[in-house]
Design a protein around this nucleic acid. Structure first.
Length: 523
DNA sequence: AAAAAAC
């Protein structure tokens, strides 16, 4: 689409005053939106069908979120949209409500043998997100004659095949499985009028570009495209440029920003103590409904297992689990049967687990943007939240990257009786030993062992703690102590620097939008 | 350096 000229969003209706604007939002919204007297918009104002409104009423929704207030009228006009919004902003309803409305308003354009040809296609990067979007869409379609279904990998093809062959207007899918169904002629995409690419940045990260390209080649040339992304990388701009036609840009809150009400703290801990530190924090704060993020699948499984061994209700979710296990884990976490969900970044984005009081990073993410996504699981919908991260020496640089990205310094929690610079490297062993015996707290259990590290299965103190995880071969030289001398965690909200304070003007949201527009024009 | 996604 050469010459695509994006148009800045100019919402016909002011943003609802009910949603308190974050401190920095004044930078991103127009004067009209920021006006304190702006009347609250209602879903009923959009001219949506009564069947849709009934579904919204049934769910207790009256007022749209800012992104819904902006996106719904624009999508109803049939425009392409480039949306910058993270999950938790009401994005899903923002695109699915007007899509449903358009499908209802326009009769089937074909004499397709299936009386219900696929007319709207929603693509998501992860299976769980697909399920979640599908649940929302189904709820909004409840009182309409429209049919929807979700297809994704890891599950038996058959039930999906039967549903697809029965005819559905709206399909929510992960790309790989969708193409599988296309090849097996279970679905035809020749009647698709609307395409949604949800979490487009994530899809690119995951290498879905070729699949996206293949899918788009199967669609009619004339169609409406909606693309949502949390970030504005050059790749995303390129994607927007090639797939969108004169897109309206909708931006809600700034990307790369940490949630306003999230209190962040980091603890520096020796690598081998991280597991005990997590257990300690969980127990000390009697935390329930916490997601603990691990960088690796193995790490997530091990951590979940050792937390279980400590008597906590914990379970892991990651890509090596079967789809059934993944869904069961999520389900029991949402139902409250599980207190701690130990997850890889499969859960960092998209999952709508609302009102989490706390998120813990067992590892700092390698990708600084994932930090924002992870801690975005808490402090949502006006609630406050805590984001606790632990990291070791070797990950110091990751913290630097993160702080650079979020443009604030994260508060360092203090470890009492713990030498923060403790390292096992070089002459660290002797130095560490000396230092601890002279200035550190006494460790009766270690002394009783003659200083040797605890064996597997050995309970170092009063039998309350289990051993470290399985480790074969000679016992590694680890010093097991300090977590029990962690200073009790104290919330430190008031001492956190205001997010705006150090934000250079060059990265202010408005200019970022301008940069995007410029980038799009050029391409 | 790792995660996710089709079989």
């Amino acid at each position: 689409m050469l010459g695509a000229e994006p148009v800045p969003a100019n919402p016909p209706v002011p943003a609802p005053a009910a949603e308190p604007a974050p401190a920095v939002a004044a930078e991103t919204v127009t004067a009209a939106e920021a006006a304190p007297e702006a009347p609250a918009v209602r879903f009923a104002d959009f001219g949506l069908s009564s069947d849709i409104l009934s579904a919204l009423t049934a769910q207790g929704y009256v007022h749209p979120t800012p992104i819904q207030a902006q996106a719904i009228p624009v999508v109803l006009q049939g425009r392409d949209v480039m949306g910058a919004a993270q999950t938790g902003t009401g994005k899903t309803a923002g695109f699915s409500l007007p899509i449903i409305q358009l499908l209802l308003a326009h009769a089937n354009s074909s004499m397709s043998p299936a009386r219900h040809p696929v007319r709207a296609l929603i693509l998501t990067p992860t299976r769980e997100l697909a399920v979640q979007v599908a649940e929302n869409v189904a709820a909004y379609c409840k009182f309409t004659p429209l049919r929807s279904c979700v297809v994704f990998g890891g599950m038996d093809m058959k039930p999906q095949t039967i549903t697809l062959r029965g005819g559905v207007e709206i399909v929510i899918a992960t790309p790989g499985r969708l193409l599988d169904h296309v090849e097996q002629k279970n679905i035809s995409l020749g009647q698709v009028q609307m395409l949604v690419m949800d979490e487009a940045d994530r899809m690119l990260d995951m290498g879905f570009l070729p699949d996206l390209q293949r899918i788009i080649n199967l669609l009619p040339k004339v169609r409406q495209n909606l693309m949502f992304s949390a970030t504005f990388s050059p790749e995303i701009k390129k994607l927007a440029n090639s797939f969108l036609k004169e897109p309206v840009l909708i931006e809600v809150a700034r990307s790369n920003a940490t949630a306003e009400r999230v209190t962040q703290v980091v603890y520096k801990v020796a690598e081998e103590h991280k597991r005990d530190v997590v257990a300690h924090i969980l127990r000390q704060r009697e935390l329930k409904q916490v997601i603990v993020f691990s960088n690796t699948k193995i790490g997530a499984s091990r951590l979940a297992r050792s937390l279980e061994q400590e008597g906590m209700k914990a379970t892991a979710i990651h890509g090596d689990k079967t789809q059934q296990e993944r869904m069961a884990a999520l389900e029991s976490f949402k139902k409250g049967e599980i207190d701690v969900l130990v997850a890889t970044d499969v859960a960092a984005r998209g999952l709508d687990i609302s009102d989490l009081p706390c998120v813990i990073n067992y590892d700092l993410p390698y990708n600084a943007e994932d930090y924002v996504h992870r801690i975005g699981r808490t402090g949502r919908a006006g609630a406050s939240g805590d984001a606790i991260s632990i990291f070791s020496d070797k990950d110091e640089r990751l913290l630097v990257d993160i702080e650079k990205l979020i443009k604030q310094t994260v508060k360092r929690g203090e470890l009492v009786g713990f030498t923060p610079s403790f390292s096992r490297g070089e002459r660290g062993d002797e130095r560490h030993g000396e230092r601890r015996s002279s200035s550190g707290p006494r460790r009766p259990e270690a002394e009783a062992r003659g200083g040797r590290p605890p064996e597997r299965g050995e309970r170092p103190d009063r039998g309350e703690r289990p051993a470290y995880g399985r480790s074969s071969g000679p016992a590694p030289r680890r010093e097991k102590v300090d977590p029990w001398f962690l200073k009790p965690y104290e919330p430190t909200k008031s001492t956190l620097p205001a997010p705006t304070a150090s934000m250079p003007s060059s990265t202010k949201p408005k200019q970022k939008v301008a940069a995007l527009l410029g980038g799009l024009r050029k391409l």
